[in-house]
Simulated assay, not measured.
Amino acid sequence: MYGIINKSIEELVKANFGDEKWDEVLERSGVKTDFFLSHEIYDDEITFKLAIAVSEVTELTLSDVLQAFGEWWILKTGKEKYTGLMEAGGSSLREFMINLPTFHNRIMLIYPKLTPPEFKVSHVTDNSLHVHYFSKREGLQEFVRGLLFGLGKMFDTKVEVELLQTRNKGDSHEVFKLKW
């Protein structure tokens, strides 16, 4: 993963728990670095070690950490660092979600070595849709759930997120029902 992911985790921890907790996270994770470079690629294992350490240090479940990070990614990292891209996605939650499958194409212009997930949208109605999440990386479904909640907040729209299918139960990919 690109360093921007790890930097964002660091920012989340420092903003919510303080610099000392971040130092504890680094120590607990065994990750040896003073800082992450946004455009450098880091092994996925580093990101997972950080997430697990955040869970242990904050005494939150890993699911809660991943979900909080998903929301943070949208509301802080996305809106502050990628304002134009986020605004270009649409003027409403529904419009943004319909445009979501092409979003990572634009991101790949910034991060050409990115291995992005793929999103597809189906069952679109006036107040709900299904989000299909395909990724080579496993274990991030709660992060995606957090992204969906974060998008709801970004568009000032109360959302419900229901996991309809998951690779944890033998399905080929995750499917979330997003309702507003």
Rank of each mutant, 00 (worst) to 15 (best):
T61G: 14
T61V: 04
T61L: 03
L62F: 13
L62V: 11
L62R: 10
L62E: 13
L62S: 05
S63R: 15
S63K: 15
D64Y: 05
D64E: 15
V65Q: 00
V65A: 02
V65M: 00
Q67Y: 10
Q67T: 15
A68I: 11
A68M: 12
A68P: 03
G70T: 03
G70P: 03
E71T: 06
E71V: 06
E71K: 14
W72A: 08
W72K: 10
I74P: 03
L75H: 02
K76I: 12
K76R: 13
K76V: 12
K76C: 06
K76Q: 14
K76N: 08
T77K: 11
T77S: 09
G78R: 03
G78C: 05
G78L: 04
K79G: 04
K79I: 11
E80R: 13
E80N: 15
E80F: 13
K81A: 10
K81T: 09
K81P: 05
K81C: 11
K81W: 08
K81I: 08
Y82Q: 08
G84E: 15
G84R: 14
L85G: 14
L85Q: 08
M86N: 04
M86A: 03
E87G: 07
E87Q: 15
E87L: 14
A88D: 11
A88N: 13
G89A: 00
G89M: 02
G89C: 01
G90L: 00
S92V: 02
S92R: 02
L93M: 02
R94F: 03
R94S: 08
R94Y: 04
E95T: 06
E95A: 06
E95I: 05
F96R: 01
M97S: 01
M97Q: 01
I98C: 03
I98E: 07
I98A: 02
N99W: 01
N99I: 00
N99S: 03
N99L: 00
L100R: 05
L100V: 07
L100Q: 06
P101N: 05
P101K: 04
T102Y: 09
T102H: 12
T102I: 11
T102N: 15
T102R: 14
T102E: 15
F103E: 03
F103M: 06
H104N: 12
H104M: 14
R106T: 09
R106Q: 14
I107S: 09
M108Y: 08
M108T: 09
M108R: 12
I110Y: 09
I110D: 09
Y111S: 04
Y111H: 07
P112N: 15
P112Y: 12
P112W: 13
K113D: 12
K113C: 10
L114H: 10
L114A: 11
L114S: 10
T115R: 14
T115G: 07
T115W: 05
T115N: 10
T115E: 12
T115S: 11
T115L: 09
P116I: 06
P116C: 08
P116M: 11
P116Y: 08
P116T: 11
P117Y: 07
P117W: 08
P117S: 12
F119D: 01
F119R: 03
F119I: 03
F119M: 04
K120G: 08
K120E: 13
V121P: 00
V121W: 01
V121N: 00
S122G: 05
H123A: 10
V124G: 06
